[in-house]
Amino acid sequence: MNNVLAISGIVIKELYRRKDFYVLFVLTALITLLLGSVSFFNDAKIARYLKEVCLLLIWISSLVIAISTTARQIPAERENRTIFPLLAKPVTRGQFIMGKFLGCWLACGVALVVFYLFFGVVSESRGRGDSSAAGLSATAAATDASSKTDEHDHAAAGSEHHNEHETPETTGQRSVVLNYVQALWLHWMMLGVVTAMVLLGSVVLSAPSVSITISFIGIIGILLLGEHLNKVALRQPQPLQAIIYTGYFLIPHLEWFDIRDRVIYDQPAIAFGDCGLATLYAIVYTGLFLFLTWFVFRRKTLTL
């Protein structure tokens, strides 16, 4: 374990000495703030488009960070021959793989925390009450809205009144924070699977550019299409249908871990049981990919 931690420490050190992460963060922040400064119809309460864009950028950046750093790790070690003095020490190849994985994954975690803090600040700076559960807020808008007050507006104004007596407001606030934390957690778990997958790719395909490209296509494909493969399969003729179905059951369903919609649209938090199951699922797949990586790398001849 000590060895694993030492190796992961080096990975993290490399990541923060290289500047990729800062570039992505600044880019995300810049685009978000730029969009945030645009006024749509003089309405300062509009928040969701900003959340949507910000989260999308965060997802893209996190995938870029995870894939590009992980895919480079082992090929770079071999190309720079830094792997030789390292493996000449009493380090097993398994520890080496675990160290690389852990380093990349932890680095992604740190990056995610920074990103989500930024996201929290952005979305809280917009319509504070607005981000609490859907029905609760609205209020202020309803009052300065049209002059005609129908029953709905009354109801909304009533609920606002209620809010000031603290309880619903604080629960709303708590559910928002819980939502963020769940989103962050699931995102991180997903990146664990991604990192392990890319690590496997980088061992199988030794050219980093190839493994980066393939990983990107594969992971984006899973995120966009993964949950629909069963529907796609139904429309195919037989041999193809069976193949797609098998794929559907084999691939890691990363799209589960994408709960952006629930955060953007202020949905109630996910049950902890489901969160735990998803985490377990991610761990199983991460373990599987790490095992495969080790299996391939175990007896690999390490010369140039």
């Binding site: 645009v38 749509f40 119809f41 309405d43 309460k45 509009i46 928040a47 969701r48 488009y49 607005d130 859907a134 029905g135 807020s137 609205a138 209020t139 202020a140 808008a141 309803a142 809205a145 709905h152 507006d153 909304a156």
Partner: peptide
């Protein structure tokens, strides 16, 4: 959407 939250669709339309 209801209760003034309809505003959230506006940026996309813009």
């Amino acid at each position: 959407l209801a209760h003034g939250q309809e505003r959230e669709i506006l940026p996309w339309l813009r």
